[in-house]
Design a protein around this nucleic acid. Sequence first.
DNA 1: CATTTATGCAAGTAATTGCTTACAAAAATA
DNA 2: TATTTTTGTAAGCAATTACTTGCATAAATG
Lengths: 194, 194
Amino acid sequence: MGDSVKEKIVVSTLKLISEKGYRSTTTRNIAEEAGVNEVTIFRCFRSKKDIVLYALKELELLKPMDKKILEKCKWDLKEDLLMLAEEYHKNFTEDKAKIMIGLRSPEIFEEVKEYLMRIPKGFKDVLIEYFKIMYQKGMLNNDDFELLAFSFLSLNFGFILMKASYGRKLIGFSNDEFVRRSIEIFVKGIAKSS
Amino acid sequence: MGDSVKEKIVVSTLKLISEKGYRSTTTRNIAEEAGVNEVTIFRCFRSKKDIVLYALKELELLKPMDKKILEKCKWDLKEDLLMLAEEYHKNFTEDKAKIMIGLRSPEIFEEVKEYLMRIPKGFKDVLIEYFKIMYQKGMLNNDDFELLAFSFLSLNFGFILMKASYGRKLIGFSNDEFVRRSIEIFVKGIAKSS
DNA sequence: CATTTATGCAAGTAATTGCTTACAAAAATA
DNA sequence: TATTTTTGTAAGCAATTACTTGCATAAATG
């Protein structure tokens, strides 16, 4: 089984899961979507579950945000939070959010839960670190770093999940616009007034 | 079929869907959970799908927030937003969030989508109305009401969904604590400085 | 008490699903 | 060209699932 075949299967699987959920995505669906015979799937992977586990483990599909990102900071609240949020949205797209939702199936959820948590957890850790430093620099009016991180995370996570769930019917903003303007509010809320 | 039986079936169905999703919740599961024979289910409802539709339509499980809630406002930003958020969290619990996620199955999603959107949509509408009035009263530094509403909604929606998805492993706050303190930040961000 | 109604029980059906087997056709490799 | 590896095809199996049927029992209702 060539690597390109394996990849096609993985990509198709994730696509279908994001649309229909894990349980409703059948191996026949996957085969059709990948333009491959169903048997080929089981020659590449031991089971349907294995496709997902492979995607999460080997492909590092959901790798968390690295703290190295902090090196990019200019230590200006607005500028930095915008950069961090953009990085988050770049990584945690609407599609990935749908995959996360789609993997909420008992046959697989316990095994993938840890992976699914990585993105929000990684972002949260980076934010806590960032806010700690900013507080030491005297730029913040609040020293509950976990609260700050979590508020900012909820704001962004909530936005993506709502968009993934209800799409444009509920949301009149582009990602960029929402991020930029909600950050302005947030910054006003936490910046030390001089 | 007595009403109490019907109710037991509905409650069990929703509970199981919140845990395992629609597709993975079998009619046998439901029967067992409800302490009822599987056949009884099909005597009360025409199909599995009908149970959910009945729950959403007849039980008004997900009824949106009413604009009458605005009558409770004291027209103090912090106090009002706290009240509105509490009302939202009272209505849109972790369990309901799980049901929303669990209903993301192709056999049923299109038919329930509209209902699932009601809660966030209703909350958003109320918020827009509220912010409009507060702006007229000269209490806000921002007149993009949809942005304000949506930021606040994302914050609360994101929090509940994260809690529903990852539970306490990621989140160290109680609902009350998070709501209270995140609102303080938000209010600082949008209140007109006098 | 007589009759209707609601429920349980046992069995089963047709469709779907994850996965397997056996064999032939390509396609890559030597 | 000869051989090995990869893929397609066809068929099917065992388990599961939504839903049905027929009949017995109990409970409510007249």
